[in-house]
Design a protein around this nucleic acid. Structure first.
Length: 501
DNA sequence: ATGTCC
């Protein structure tokens, strides 16, 4: 049997791109890493594998904990991690969702071509930078009073439709139709709401960005056609999350878990895994608060998209509807959700891996996707009518020098990953190291001169932290996803204008 | 990721 060793962790090769940490000791399931040899070298570089093994200690973890090809270490649970826990006797873990609740990506298509845009890059990047609030701290498209924030938390993009910032068509092209019905704003703290009020419609900082891109490659013509994508087309990508509101919500519940569920915490190998037992008051309250923060993030991305439409209308002197600026899809990559999945069970009805199962049953699970994207294939009931027969669009952003991918949910995703795939390129080095290696202005000048990519940012330090060289090869991440059949390549894009915090 | 510490 082929094995690879990283510290005290031995990985067994199951087959091409599939590696397993066998179940032993206090582990409640085996763990799996989905990666090529090259990506596995990166994954073995930091604490990712240790964190992945720790995640298998979570009560009720089902089948296996899984690391996506772009995985790297995070707070407690790996970024690029998927963990499905039983909703009756398992747990829910804020650490396995992440601080930036519903960090995610949306892509808007247009009927413009790269040729239409050439010569306008400078004007466009300046106008977008002016119109879309970005950077650390406050300032949003909408100033929310107490009532508005409650409404946004409860109703997500439904609020945006009523307030004139979204169309019904936008709603129909968003994961969960842009709102979680399970949202309970009363479980979001006043402090979190106060932080969110001034940030409704703001990009934030770090790896968040708005990018105008051109489609350079199409891999599956028929799927691309159903998605409304073709070569040379201009599209817009928006990557951001729930800002201070989501961050505060995560912090609030991590604290409460330490106080109210110390016993469970003490049983876990890392207290950053911080889980609340399924069925507990705290689990219910966290789930309701998390769903509310998810709604906030969808409104956030919607308002940024609204401003983008206005900027395009201004720069190109046409109505945005004439430029067919439609939402392709909005995907969340830091969430947990109650989903029903088929799992193999042993004679006592306990979930086991497929080889040991005597039959298969449907189970309701909290599917934690932290730095992982839902990738449902055709046929899943959750898919909107537009994608019911083709599979959902999956958007995977690369770095500002590399461009991004559109995939579609693959046939193997339900068997391998509870319907998930990667979420990005994954970092290669820390932010501190990046600032030692790169200088923001130099990165910007080189991108403009060599690649005709126009980058505008609040902070030069952020550009250095996000320089193309600090990221893994997004092509390799997507290749593995495609070859495993969890997310199939549909199209590739290349940056034209990028704004960031 | 994040008013990068209550």
């Amino acid at each position: 049997m082929e094995t690879r060793e990283f510290g005290d962790i031995e990985l067994r090769r199951v087959r091409e791109h599939v590696w397993e940490i066998p179940q032993e000791g206090e582990m409640n399931a085996p763990a799996r890493v989905l990666a090529s040899e090259a990506l596995l070298d990166h994954i073995g570089d930091d604490k990712t594998l240790e964190q992945l093994r720790n995640a298998t200690h979570l009560p009720g973890i089902t089948k296996h904990a899984i690391c996506m090809p772009d995985g790297h270490q995070g707070y407690g649970f790996p970024v690029g991690g998927v963990g499905a826990t039983d909703t009756t006797d398992g747990c829910i873990s804020p650490g396995a969702v992440g601080y930036d609740i519903n960090c995610g990506v949306r892509m808007m298509t247009t009927n413009l071509t790269y040729e239409d845009l050439q010569g306008h890059e400078e004007e466009l990047v300046d106008a977008l930078f002016e119109a879309v609030p970005s950077g650390l701290g406050g300032g949003g498209v909408v100033k929310g009073d107490a009532e508005t924030i409650e409404d946004i938390l409860a109703r997500g993009m439904q609020w945006a439709v009523d307030a004139g910032y979204a169309t019904d068509d936008d709603l129909a092209h968003c994961e969960d139709e842009g709102f979680r019905d399970d949202a309970r704003p009363e479980f979001v703290s006043q402090k979190a709401k106060d932080r969110g009020r001034n940030q409704i419609g703001s990009l934030g900082s770090g790896n968040h960005f708005l990018e105008v891109q051109r489609v350079t490659d199409v891999y599956r013509e028929d799927v691309a056609e159903s998605f409304g994508l073709e070569a040379d087309q201009i599209v817009v990508l928006i990557h951001c999350g729930s800002r201070g509101l989501g961050h505060q919500t995560c912090t609030d519940y991590l604290r409460r878990i330490e106080k109210e569920h110390k016993d469970l915490l003490d049983d876990l190998p890392d207290k950053e895994l911080a889980a609340a037992p399924a069925g507990s008051e705290l689990a219910e309250e966290y789930y309701g608060a998390m769903c509310a923060a998810i709604n906030f993030a969808w409104v956030n991305r919607q308002l940024i998209m609204h401003r983008t439409r206005e900027v395009f209308a201004d720069v190109f002197d046409r109505d945005w509807r004439d430029m067919e600026m439609r939402l392709l899809y909005d995907v969340a990559h830091n969430i947990a959700k109650k989903e029903v999945h088929e799992v193999g069970v042993d004679p006592e009805g306990r979930p086991v891996r497929d080889g040991d199962a005597v039959e298969r049953e449907e189970r309701e699970l909290y599917v934690h996707r932290k730095g992982a994207t839902r990738a449902f294939p055709a046929g899943r009931p959750e898919l909107p009518p537009a994608y019911a027969d083709v599979g959902q669009p999956v958007i995977i952003p690369g770095s500002m020098g590399a461009g991004s991918y559109v995939l579609r949910g693959g046939d193997q995703s339900l068997d391998l990953t509870f319907g998930s795939t990667a979420h990005g390129a994954g970092r290669l080095m820390s932010r501190t190291k990046a600032k030692q290696e790169y200088w923001g202005e130099t990165v910007q000048d080189e991108l403009r001169e060599q690649e005709k990519i126009y980058v505008k940012a609040q902070s030069g330090a952020t550009v250095a932290e996000e320089a193309p060289g600090v990221y893994k090869d997004v092509d390799e991440v997507v290749r593995v996803s495609d070859e495993l059949g969890i997310g199939d390549k549909v199209a590739r894009t290349f940056p034209v204008c990028n704004i960031k915090g």
